[in-house]
């Protein structure tokens, strides 16, 4: 077993650690499904994201060995996550505030727009189509 002792040093974690972390992940999955059945308003999303982040942290620290490995890999991963968070949050600064100047561009899609062919679609329920009807309207 220890024929090549030069490389079997390092961070071999006992196998029961994987089983325990796996069990914790399964329990957290059950909890997040159970909590989602209770209506908490906006808190449902918050709770679901906290539980998902707890699970992702367990996966990163134990399955991906970040707890035991060179800290450089953890640093790379955390910097990437922070960069991603900056991208998304800065985008939201723009998109969530557009309505302050032009209320009609507050939402990227019109709430009354219905794209699937309801019976009323022919009678003008798709106001956004009006501009393009000149060039590529189907034959009547």
């Amino acid at each position: 077993m220890a024929v090549h002792a030069d490389n079997s040093k390092g961070h071999s974690i006992p196998s029961k650690v994987y089983l325990r972390v796996g069990a914790a992940l399964l329990i957290l999955t059950a909890i997040t499904v159970a909590v989602a059945q209770i209506p908490l308003g906006g808190f449902n999303l918050v709770v679901a994201m906290i539980i998902a982040t707890a699970k992702a942290t367990l996966v990163a620290l134990f399955f991906m060995h970040l707890k035991y490995d060179n800290r450089l890999y953890l640093l790379i991963f955390v910097i990437a996550l922070a960069t991603l968070a900056v991208f998304i949050i800065l985008t939201l600064f723009d998109t969530l505030n557009r309505g302050r100047i032009l209320p009609e561009v507050a939402a990227p899609i019109r709430s009354e727009a219905v794209i699937y062919p309801l019976d009323s679609a022919r009678s003008g329920a798709i106001p956004t189509e009006d501009t393009s009807s000149g060039s590529n309207a189907p034959e009547h």
């Binding site: 991603l84 991208f87 985008t91 939201l92 998109t95 939402a107 990227p108």
Partner: peptide
């Protein structure tokens, strides 16, 4: 491998951004 994984993260990150934007506004 970790450098590759963070490019994967950013690839999915664009879609998570799309999701956040549309869910926040609608």
């Amino acid at each position: 491998m970790w450098l590759f994984l963070i490019t994967e993260l950013l690839l999915f990150g664009g879609l998570f951004g799309f999701y956040t934007f549309y869910r926040a506004s609608n």
